[in-house]
Design a protein around this nucleic acid. Structure first.
Ligand SMILES: [Zn+2]
Ligand SMILES: [Zn+2]
Ligand SMILES: [Zn+2]
Ligand SMILES: [Zn+2]
Lengths: 141, 141
DNA sequence: GCTTGAACCTCTACCTACTGTAGCTTGTAG
DNA sequence: CTACAAGCTACAGTAGGTAGAGGTTCAAGC
């Protein structure tokens, strides 16, 4: 049985984060020592490793919750799993597209700036007026 | 003089967001009517438009605060402005790099999945084991 | 001049995904 | 048996807003 600090080290998670996952019901309540300290088994280790890896791939905790539920029903079709992963892929692609537009515009601003005074700084000029901006960044976060 | 709702419409901002910017000191406290309602002038309109545009380009509110301070000193050099914009560019580029690694891995997971049962779903398999993962996604957010 | 209702006001709580701190208790090595 | 690291709970805070309750004000139509 592992103490929370050991589990934390093994999975690269902070102790508080583990307690937080328990609090929101993502990790089951573990057994406790007589003194009230949490003790974890290998199933907990696997589950936490899964959660952390999915987080690293950008899945939200809600998506991870769904993936864990599905994962507990081995004979079922994996179509739903793939839908979640596909949704995540689309999300990532949308963010990339948006960030690339920002990169282009930031580069252009910096390239065009004469690097003299504030009053003729191209960066500020573009920020003041989207008309001077070629980026198409109307849409959300 | 503009009421807060008009200012909101003109800048594509929610009313609550404008009050929030005031609360954190990003917008100055505006004049009020006898009844206590906020009334804005053109300087406020410009300032808010600047803030929203910078937000759309991904600058943090802290960076925007610095940019606004600098913007109030027209004779100074714009070097500091460019440093902030450059920092933002680096930030955006780092996020793109990370998201591209995620995209690659998500695509691969989905491509390799047989789309049969949960027990042999490649997506879940990769999530369970980073060893089965080609992505280099150890590093931060 | 009066009424109506949209828009305004303040205050508080909530969102994601954690992270940090205070003040106290438990486990374990020497 | 004593230190003290590591555990415990509870609460506050982060960014950047968003939503709602419950009450007031402004302005247009009659
Ligand atoms: Zn400049
Ligand atoms: Zn623009
Ligand atoms: Zn699958
Ligand atoms: Zn991986």
């Amino acid at each position: 049985m592992l103490a929370i600090g050991t589990l934390a080290k093994r999975t690269g998670t902070k102790v508080q984060t583990i307690r937080y996952y328990e609090q929101i019901g993502l990790l089951p309540e573990p057994g406790r020592t007589e003194g009230g300290q949490r003790r974890y088994g290998n199933a907990d280790l696997d589950r936490l490793a899964f959660i952390r890896h999915a987080r690293q791939l950008g899945f939200t905790l809600e998506a991870i919750r769904e993936l864990l539920n599905l994962s507990d029903n081995p004979p079922r079709s994996c179509a739903e799993v793939d839908v979640i992963a596909h949704r995540q892929l689309k999300e990532v692609e949308a963010r990339i597209a948006r960030l690339e537009a920002l990169r282009t515009e930031l580069k252009r601003m910096l390239r065009e700036c004469s690097r003299e005074t504030i009053s003729d700084c191209r960066v500020l000029e573009v920020l003041r007026d989207h008309g001077a901006c070629l980026a198409d960044h109307q849409t959300g976060a």
